[in-house]
Design a protein around this nucleic acid. Structure first.
Length: 546
RNA sequence: GCUCUCGUAGUUCAAUGGAUAGAACAGGACUCUUCUAAGGUCUUGAUGUAGGUUCGAUUCCUGCCGAGAGCACCA
């Protein structure tokens, strides 16, 4: 129907003399205005020497597609209303989800990257929620996706923590204690630098043991968290590997791509296209910096998976870093030019100011989950749940609420995190989506043996907004994919859940006496399917009850 | 100083160059003899500023004002 309509308008415009006219059907700003709309009359009025309204009328009169009524509205929109059979069919179609904007493409997606010995803080939580969701959205758009996380298991930050662990400081505080001592005391600073070297050359058995053990404990801890968050990584990379590879690549290309300057080895971004700026790849000690490690990582990733696009997700404070490194990598590996993509997000900040593991005022991912859990527990205190159900529901709802609050906005902006306000259980929130789905699921269960579900259209059925929204799901998914923007899914699901909630409030759905009951049930089922796949794209689970 | 982001209701966020700028929270008024009220219904309220491009600008361009981030051996 849509295609027919577009063809119809296109050929009309071509007849009138427009060369290769672009005709797009869009959703109107308000659902009451029409099911689809087009602005071609306004776009081509000038070229054809007509008034937009006049042209719109002409186009309208030329349209001959069965099941569509057409409307012309100032300033020149042509609006289309499709009949109930269209939606009846499209709702089922939209559940199949067969097309995708990335079909046949291969993506490598890297995110989260917590550092062993350091806290997995709410910034990592944010990165993880976004990374996981972007990966799922791209996959749902037909791509083959491999995911990776990259751990900074060597470097000064590790040495700081090892120094503190050696002194007997507790694990959780090791990094911040070490960092403080490093800044405050010159002797300690030297000591830590020497520990850093010993970690690299493995010359001191005591330090090796502390290091190996701490690394293992940290990584296990991360795995645990990934499991709770529903994150899976196909690959784990480590800076201890990428550093060596990167260093070699830099050394091999000194003179052509890199050059020595003040004892370090640098990449002069000003001399390459696109122009960027200078960055250090090997420091004076000829140790690889973050830049060289990233170069090494590019080589390593290449060998694991021949991707079309490799996406690295980080906070936006690294934007300029990635601009330079991408150019450098493109020089070293010309076949990677144009394949690297850096997706950056804002920061989670506390109302008190910046959240950073260097200032000390850090909240760990677990702290946040626990705090939210307490609130959820209060909320379900009067529910008749077994202890086990309570536990399950609380975990799912808490993590859902947190992920939602991260994914609800465009990823570029900062999130000012206020515990009392940011995590909501009402309205624009994760639990709102979960709740609507749970209620719909519960209806389906209750209907068993009472009313038979049927996709057949009842007589005199008028298309509901619920159907109109369900039909949109595949389009929302492609847009979210094209723009790498999970928040489009969020916005859509909120609209959809709101529509269902009103559908639910205004009709009794399970009703033997009502001939529309079977179809309403089918819509309820379609709703739960779309909600579940949509929430799955966000990495949010749905509890059995809540 | 240079570079890059960003300024939308009281607050937190939306809006593929289009129609009456959408939600949620907070405020006000209703709503559980219908299947989970974490729900539903109604209501008050916003595009920093000055220009430009366009049939049409929250969106694109420029100036100004304001906020944030990054700029050589950390990651």
């Amino acid at each position: 129907m849509k295609e027919e309509l577009i063809k119809n308008i296109k050929s009309f415009l071509e007849e009138k003399g427009v060369k290769d006219p672009k005709v797009n059907l869009e959703y109107p700003t308000h659902i009451e205005l029409g099911d689809y709309t087009t602005n071609v009359a306004m776009a081509y009025a000038k070229e054809l020497g007509k008034k937009p309204l006049e042209l719109a009328e002409e186009i309208k009169n030329n349209i001959n597609v069965e099941g569509v009524t057409t409307n012309v509205v100032v300033p020149g929109f042509i609006n289309f209303f499709f009949n109930e059979h269209y939606f009846n069919k499209q709702v089922q179609e939209s559940l199949k989800n067969t097309h995708g904007v990335f079909s046949g493409k291969k993506f490598f997606i890297e995110h989260t990257q917590p550092n062993p010995f350091k806290l997995f803080h709410i910034g990592h939580l944010m990165n993880n929620a976004i990374g996981e969701s972007v990966a799922r959205i791209i996959k749902a758009n037909g791509a083959e996706v491999q995911t990776a996380t990259y751990h900074g298991d060597v470097g000064l930050h590790v040495a700081k923590a090892v120094w503190a662990l050696k002194k007997g400081v507790e694990e959780n505080d090791a990094y911040s204690e070490g960092h403080k001592a490093y800044e405050d005391d010159v002797v300690t600073k030297e000591e830590i630098i020497s520990i850093n070297k010993k970690i690299y050359d493995e010359s001191d058995p005591e330090i090796v043991e502390i290091y190996e053990n701490g690394r293992k404990v940290s990584l296990e801890h991360f795995e645990n968290l990934y499991k709770r968050l529903g994150s899976h990584f196909d690959f784990h990379f480590y800076e201890s590997e990428s550093g060596e590879v990167g260093k070699e690549l830099v050394v091999d290309n000194i003179g052509s791509i890199f050059e020595e300057s003040e004892g370090a080895v640098i990449f002069r971004g000003e001399n390459f296209e696109p122009k960027t700026h200078t960055r250090v790849f090997l420091n004076k000690e000829k140790l690889p910096t973050y830049e060289a490690k990233e170069l090494g990582l590019a080589e390593i990733k290449k060998d694991f998976f021949s991707y079309d696009t490799s996406i690295t997700i980080t906070a936006n404070e690294q934007d300029s870093f990635f601009k330079v490194v991408e150019v450098a990598i493109g020089e070293v590996f010309p076949d990677l030019k144009g394949k690297l993509m850096h997706l950056s997000h804002g920061l989670i900040k506390l109302p008190t100011g910046k959240m950073s593991s260097r200032t000390g005022s850090v909240i760990s991912a677990e702290d946040m989950i626990d705090q939210v859990k307490e609130k959820v527990l209060e909320k379900i205190a009067d529910r008749e749940f077994t202890e086990e159900e309570k536990k399950g529901v609380t975990e799912i709802v808490s993590i859902g609420a947190i992920k939602y609050s991260i994914l609800r906005q465009a990823i570029g902006g900062d999130i000012i995190f206020d515990f009392d306000k940011s995590i909501s259980f009402e309205g624009d929130s994760g639990p709102y989506l979960q709740y609507a789905t749970v209620r719909a699921n519960s209806l389906l269960k209750k209907a068993e043996g009472v009313v038979e579900l049927s996709n057949e259209l009842p007589v005199d059925w008028k298309t509901t907004n619920l159907e109109r929204l369900l039909e949109r799901f595949p389009n929302v998914l492609s847009r979210a994919g094209k723009e790498y923007a999970p928040h489009h899914i969020v916005t859509y699901l909120i609209d959809l859940a709101g529509e269902f909630n009103s559908f639910y409030a205004n009709h009794k759905i399970i009703d033997k006496e009502d001939s529309t009951s079977s179809y309403r049930l089918a819509l309820t089922k379609a709703f739960t399917q779309v909600m579940e796949s949509g929430l799955n794209l966000l990495g949010i689970k749905v509890p059995e009850k809540m």
